[in-house]
């Protein structure tokens, strides 16, 4: 899970989930605590989906 996807692609990661921002990849301090946690959950669920999906090369999970 990373914000700067081009770097993850350059260095060879295979399952990539784009995140919010470098200082808070899994959060957004501008949101309410509830909305922020919902955002984090959505991203983590996407990571779990990526881990459950077969890939044959570098794949970015935008959804």
């Amino acid at each position: 899970m990373c914000t700067i996807v081009p770097i993850s692609l350059s260095i060879g990661a295979n399952r990539i989930v784009p995140t919010v921002s470098i200082p808070h990849p899994l959060g957004n301090p501008e949101l309410s605590p509830e909305a922020e946690k919902a955002l984090r959950r959505e991203l983590v669920e996407r990571a779990l989906k990526a881990l459950s999906t077969p890939v044959d090369g570098q794949t970015v999970f935008n959804k």
Binding site: G27, P29, E36, K37, R40, V44, E45
Partner: peptide, 13 residues
């Protein structure tokens, strides 16, 4: 710190 390491969400899951 959950903004970097999402322990809270994984505990929920």
């Amino acid at each position: 710190p959950d903004r970097v390491l999402p322990v809270d969400v994984l505990r929920d899951l």
